[in-house]
Design a binder for these strands. Sequence first.
RNA 1: GCCGGGGUGGCGGAAUGGCAGACGCAGUGGACUUAAAAUCCACUGGGAGAGAUCCCGUGCCGGUUCGAGUCCGGCCCCCGGCACCA
Length: 829
Amino acid sequence: MIEYDSAKIEAKWQRRWAQANAFCAKDFDAERKKRYVLVMFPYPSGDLHMGHLRNYTIGDVVARYYRMLGYNVLNPMGFDAFGLPAEQAAIDRQVHPRDWTNEAIKTHKRQLEQAGFSYDWARMVNTSSPDYYKFTQWIFLKLFEMGLVYRREAPVNWCEEHGVLADEEAPEGRCWRCGEIVHAKMLSQWFIKTTEFADELLRGIEALNEWPERVRVMQRNWIGRSMGTEVKFYIPAINKSVEVFTTRADTLFGVTFLAFAPEHNLAEELAKIGGKLDEFTSFREAVNKVSTIERFAEEKEKSGIYLGLNAVHPLTGEEIPLYCADYVLMEYGTGVVMGVPAHDTRDFLFAKKYELPIIKVIERNEDSSNEGEAELPYTGYGVMVNSNEFSGKKSEEGIRELNTLIESKGLGGAKVQYRMRDWLVSRQRYWGVPIPIVWCDNCGAVPEKYDNLPVILPENVEFTATPSGRLATNPDFVRTVCPNCGRSAKRETDTMSTFVDSAWYFLRYCDPKSEKEPFRKELVDYWMPVDEYIGGIEHAVGHLLYSRFICYALNRAGVISFKEPFRRLFTQGMLYKDGAKMSKSKGNVVSVDHFLQKYGSDTARMISLFWGPPERDVEWQEGGVEGCFRFIKRLFNFFVSTWDYVKDATSVNLENPSDQEKEFLHIIHSGIYDVTETLNNWHFNTTVSSLMILFNRLSDAWGKLSDKQKGLMSLRFLLKEALLTLLKLLSPISPHVAEELWEFSGQSGFVMHAEWPKYDERFLKRAEIEYGISINGKPRSTITVQLGTDLEDVRRLALEEPKVKSLVAGKKVIRVIVVPDRLVNIVVR
RNA sequence: GCCGGGGUGGCGGAAUGGCAGACGCAGUGGACUUAAAAUCCACUGGGAGAGAUCCCGUGCCGGUUCGAGUCCGGCCCCCGGCACCA
C-alpha cells in the first residue's frame, strides 16, 4: 500500500500550483466578485517560526475557502524590508543591509512557499526596492504639496557616544550599547500633519463595525478628543496674555496659580523678568536630567518654581502667581494649565507642597450622599459655589454659560482638543527611504521633482559613523542641485520611518508593476478595500491609524476614491511557549523548517488552527501535533485502501433511502454543514474538529457494514461521494494531501479550484431522534423516535417511558415542555 | 483609576437558553508482537454504591426561566491596553 509521505506530496503540489499559476488574482474579473484577503506583511529577519505560521495559515485558509466559493481572490505577500535590524547587522557582522535583507527575504519566501500558502507571488512587494520606495517618496511629495508636511524641533533619544537612538535602543532610558543615560535632545525634523484629519479619523471609526471593539476603543483613545474651554490670562509684566486649556471651566473661580511646562518658550522670559532666571535654569536642568520615563512615573512627586510674576484672573481680577511645574506637558493643550487645587489631584498635591491657597468652588450633589464630604480634592461634577453669579449652578450648566461669557469678552471660548499629535517621520538612520527634500541656500527646503524620483539610497556609506551621519558620508548622494533654482544644494540625509512604507503597501498589491504612478486608480478602486485584514493587536494604533490617514489624505488628493482601507479587521492571537510569546529574542521558537521536515505543512497548518480560537493567544503543545498528524495519516490510509471498492460506483436513485443510506447522507451533509458554518464564523479550531468527526463517523459507519452491504452500489456510491466531499472540505486547511488524493482518485484539475460542497437540509438530521427527558429540569432518561414524529406523540411517549412513569408516579404533572428534536421537560409537584 | 478580553476535567478547548465536557492530548485496561514502537478496540469530571442507579459539578452570591456555562444584578480573580491629557 502507498505510504503517506508529506515531504514528497507537498513538494509535488507546490510545484504543480506554481506551474499552473493557481493562485493568480485576475484584475477586473467580470464573472466573479472580488475578495481581498491580507495578512500584515512581515519584517524579514531570521527564520519563520510556528507563531508566524499560525498567522499566515488563518489568512490562507480564508483565501482558499473564498476561492472555492467562487470569488476572485487577491491574496498577496510582501516584505517590510527597511528597518533597524538590517542596519545593525551591517555594523555587527559587516554585511551590507541590502544583502542581509535580500537573504532574509529569500529564506522567508521559501518557507512561506513550503507551507503551501496560496500567495500571488507575481505581486510581491519589497519596500526596500527602488520600484517601491520611489512611490513612498511620491506620496511624501503629494502630502507636501497638500501642505501636510512641515518641519519643527522635536526631542530625540540622545546618547553622547552613539547619537540618536530609537525607543527600542534605549530601554529604561539607557543606551543599549554603552548603558549611558539617554537624554532628550531637540532636533529639527519632518512631521506629517495627521492632526489635520483627527476629527475625520475619529468619526470614521464609527463605520468600522467589523473591527474588534477593543481596537476601535484604542484608536479613539489615541485620537483623544476632548471638549473644553480655552481661557486667556493677562500677564501685566509682559503685557501679553497666555492661553490655558481646561475641560472644567466650572472650576475657573478656584484657580489659585498657573503652571507652565518647563519646555514652554515663555517660561524662561518670564523667569528673567521675574528675577528668577537662576532658579529657573537649574530647575529646567534638573528636569532634563531625569529620563522621560522617570519624570512621568506614577509616584513621582510634583515639583516646580515660582517665576516671580503674576497673571490676572480674567473674571475676578485677582492676582494669580505663575509657576513652572514638571507635571505640565508641553505636548498637550497649550503647555500651560490653570491650577485648581480643590478639584484636581495633581494641582492639589502641588498646592500643598508650595502652600498655595485651596479654594473650594464645587459642592458635591446632595443626592450623592457623602459623609466625608469635606475631603478635597473633589474631582467630580457638582454644584458651583464661591463663584459669584454662577454659584448654585450645576457644573454642566456652568461650563456652557462660562463658554459663552468668555467668548463674549474676547477671552477665549469653547475649544476641542486632541491628544493625537502629528506624525514624526524623520529617522536619523541609513536603511530607510531617503526623504525627497533638497536643502538649498537660496530656497530653503525644496521638495524634489516627481520626475526625479526615486531618490536612490546609495550603497556606499560608512557604517562606522553615528547613525544620524551615515547617509551623509556619501558625498555623491549629498551633492545635488536645487530643483527650484538649479544651484548646487544638499540632500536631506534623514530617512523615513518604516511606518510610512507600510502605510500604503496594500495599495501597491493592487497594481505592483505600475511605473509612472504608485498604482492605477481604477485597479485600486477595483480591489480595495481590503475585505479581510489579519494581523496582531500590536498594530492597533500605529500602523492601522497611519494607513487610515494615508488613505484619507490620498482621497482628498483625488488619488483614490475611498477613505477606509480595511473593511474587516481580525486580530489574531499570539503563540506562546514556556509562558512567553514565541520570539527569537526569547529563545523559545519552534522553527518552521524543523517542523515541516518532521510533520509536513499540512499538519503544521492544521495544528496551528486546532490549538484554539484564532483570536486568542494559545500555548504551544507538542501533543496536539501528533493528533493532527495521525488524523491526516489515518485519512490518507483509509482513502487509499477503500478507494478500490468504490471507484467504479455510479450514481444511484436515492429517492427512498434505506437506513444505512440515510446514515451516510446524514454524515456527509451534517459534515458539510459543520465545516461551512465554522469557516463562516472563523472558528477554525472547530473546523478541524468537524473534519475529524466527519472522517471518524465515515470510517466507523463503513467499518460496521457487512461485506454484502459493502457490495451494494448505493453504499459504495455514497462512500465515494463522501470521500470526495471530504477532500474538498479539507482542502483549505491541508491542501497538499487533499490534492494528492484528489489526483489519486482520478479527478481532474485541482481540488483547490473545485466548487465548495453544498448541504441538503433534508439530511442534516438523523432518521432517528433521541430526546432527553428531564423531570423538573434534571435529566432522567431518553427516548428515541422517528424523525418528524408529532410533538403530541413525543410528549405521550415520554410520559409512558417506564423510568419516567415510576418517577412521576404519585405526583402531579403540571406542565410538559417539548423542544423539537431535543428534549422533553416534565414539571411535577 | 478607566477601557477591553477571559475564568468550564489532568491539559488545549466544545456547547443558536435545551442531556455540560464535542474534537484532540495525556492516562488506564485490552488486542497484535518474542519484545518495543506503530496501529486498533474499550474506558476515562468528582464522590457514593456490588450493581441498576443516586448525589455534586462551568470563579463567588443572588435573580429571571419549565430549564442558565449561556440572560440580568452584585462581587472576586487573571490577562491585555491606556493614563500627571488639565
